[in-house]
Amino acid sequence: MPKRGKRYRALLEKVDLNKVYSIEEAAALIPQIKSAKFDETVEVHVKLGIDPKKSDQNVRSTVALPHGTGRSVRVLAIAKGEKIAEAQAAGADIAAGEEIIQEILDGRSDFDAVVATPDVMGAVGSKLGRILGPKGLLPNPKAGTVGFNIGEMVREIKAGRIEFRNDKTGVVHGPVGKASFAPEKIAENVRAFIKAVESAKPDGAKGTYLRSIYLTTTMGPSIKVSTSTAHQS
């Protein structure tokens, strides 16, 4: 077991490790387990009953959090013609044509999300796949980041839409707000996230799908959340 610092141990005393909390109870604890000088991110971690080694059981989708993430997202939109202006009008921080591909190859990285229209994906995928792919930034139809409705995609991402996917251990992670959020807003975001994860359940998954749910902050301890309360409104 790793040795915990005095600050962390003090925060841990505020969480009953033998208790399984409702979403509302867990959200109400967030103000008590934050301690960093910065506004910590609130994260939800969901263990799924899937076999991540099987491609037909992998989970990947998006969710529009009702209260956003509390984080400003810099969106890059790559398109052609009038779609560039559409993306810019929708709030894209960078809206450009295929010429920006070379800039990214040269090291440009001042963006947190990338959307693109289908007519530029050939160039984007072949030239930027090795750069954007490992960072999870390569536009993908399944992630809702490829389409001719580029203005809508930009607005949704700026408003708090996030992508989630399971890791190699079958766990889905996602930011669901900031520690400064009111507990009820955190709870509503958590419910929206879990509902989206449930909606993305692969047909090949058997048995219990939601195995465990934990809520935590960037620097704080984890709070175990009841999977049954996730279904309550």
Rank of each mutant, 00 (worst) to 15 (best):
E184G: 00
G136T: 12
L210H: 10
V146R: 07
P202E: 04
K37W: 00
S228Q: 10
A77F: 05
E188A: 15
M219L: 14
K54P: 09
E156M: 10
R7N: 11
A36Q: 07
V20T: 12
V75M: 11
G204R: 09
K201D: 01
M121F: 08
A27D: 03
K168L: 14
I104R: 06
R9Y: 10
I194P: 00
E103V: 12
T229C: 12
V75C: 10
E99R: 14
G70M: 08
V172Q: 01
F193H: 03
I104V: 13
I33L: 08
K80F: 08
L12C: 06
L215Y: 00
L76M: 14
S222D: 05
N140Q: 11
N149M: 09
K53A: 09
G129E: 14
K158Q: 04
P66S: 11
K80T: 14
P221N: 09
A187G: 09
Y214V: 05
R165D: 08
L65Y: 12
A196T: 13
T69Q: 01
H67K: 10
L128V: 02
D51N: 13
R191A: 09
G133T: 14
V75Y: 06
G49M: 02
A200W: 00
A96R: 12
L48T: 03
K158F: 02
A96M: 06
M1P: 07
R191E: 09
G160R: 00
T216G: 09
P202I: 04
E198M: 13
E184I: 08
E152W: 08
S228E: 15
I213N: 03
S22H: 10
K3S: 13
T217E: 11
P66H: 07
R191Y: 11
P141A: 15
A77N: 05
D16S: 11
A28Y: 08
D112T: 05
I157E: 04
R165N: 09
S228C: 02
T41M: 09
M121E: 08
K37F: 01
R191I: 06
P66F: 05
N58Q: 15
A10P: 07
S109I: 09
I100E: 01
I157N: 03
S109R: 15
V190D: 02
D167K: 02
I30T: 11
H67L: 06
V171W: 05
A159P: 05
L12Y: 09
G170L: 05
E86L: 13
S72Q: 12
Y209I: 00
K127W: 03
G207Q: 02
D112C: 12
A116Q: 00
